[in-house]
Design a protein around this nucleic acid. Structure first.
Lengths: 192, 192
DNA sequence: ACCATAACGGAGGCATGCCTCCGCTACAAC
DNA sequence: GTTGTAGCGGAGGCATGCCTCCGTTATGGT
């Protein structure tokens, strides 16, 4: 537990060696990402295979259970979020936090399934959360130390405050931006 | 269109005359409310009939389509929210708004299906939204006129800001309360 | 008390999704 | 090129959900 919790877990599934197999593997992951985004975690596996242009058997050979497939997609997405946190680290404290949150919001906007999983409980999800928190939590800490962000908010609080904005279908980007602005204002060192 | 848009629409379905039929009708509505809350708008109709302790045929006689059933539940919930807005009207401006939003959040907390529908587009949902907005929007207007709430937020903005908080499974009520507080602070007449 | 009939409930046909199994294909190692 | 084998794909069995239809039940008016 104490070694380094900052890497998303490896998945049980391995990318195949043969060229055609690898093509199918990647196509499946892409199709699954889309399908999960569109229909949530319960998307039809046969549909995913169809989208990927492979037989249902190929899907099951690569990902024996729905969970395996979902996990693979999920870990990939979390990795991207971790990278974004690293990228933001160069900016000044408050801007860095805002930049990452903005990324988080627009990134999750269409990823319904990903969002659903934020609250799910399993070894898998737990360690993904740990990795993401480890990558992005320092941004909040810095913003708090610099006095820009209120001290009584935990990183978990912030994510929940903001992640709702993620899942609503906004009229336009302008509105989403405005609403996110409200949330961020609530996060600034407040009046009281 | 211009008469009065402040009442939720009547549903196509009517409560039966016979006593036993009425019992079943109500049991179905209750079961459906639970099922939709638990599994979202796609909950199994056979399961709903089972929960209500009636045959599947009875469900279909009362609610010919899934939409009819869903609409009936939905309208009922919206009505409650409208009532809550009327109740809050007695309080001072800012407190009234906060009271209703608090109600909105805790009320929707478990109602996943209801939440999903906030963004859905149909005659039905549109007029429900109109009714709810008509009931609760004045609370925001008052809070803005009194100078407590920032003027650049529309009621729609506020709902979206807050409705996200609704759908996240919080660790405990205390956290939800805290996060809602952040959102509300962001809504107050701001620093800039 | 009777009975016309509104209401009941579940069997069953159809569609869709899950997953296994196995005969066929084509890659890559030689 | 040949060939052993990893990989392919879809038929098909099972489960579940949707919805219709109709023989049975029991309510409420008389």
């Amino acid at each position: 537990m104490s070694e380094q919790a900052s890497e998303p877990p490896r998945v049980a599934v391995r990318r195949p060696h043969r060229a055609d197999a690898r093509r199918n593997f990647d196509a499946l992951l892409d199709a699954a990402r889309d399908a999960f985004a569109e229909h949530g975690a319960g998307a039809s596996l046969e549909d995913i295979a169809r989208r990927a242009g492979v037989g249902i058997g190929t899907l099951y050979r690569n990902f024996p259970t729905r969970q395996d497939l979902f996990d693979s997609v999920y870990v990939g997405e979390i990795e991207k979020l971790c990278d974004a946190a690293r990228d933001a680290a160069d900016l000044p404290a408050w801007e860095a936090l805002v930049a990452w949150l903005r990324h988080f919001v627009s990134y999750m906007a269409t990823k319904r399934a990903l969002y659903e999983s934020l609250n799910r409980d399993s070894e898998m999800f737990r360690s993904c959360r740990v990795a993401m928190y480890a990558a992005a939590e320092p941004l909040l800490a810095r913003a708090q130390q610099s006095g820009a962000a209120r001290a009584d908010a935990s990183f978990d609080d912030v994510l929940r405050l903001v992640s709702g904005i993620t899942s609503a279908a906004f009229v336009d980007d302008e509105q989403r931006e405005r609403v996110l602005g409200f949330a961020l204002d609530g996060l600034r060192t407040g009046p009281a």
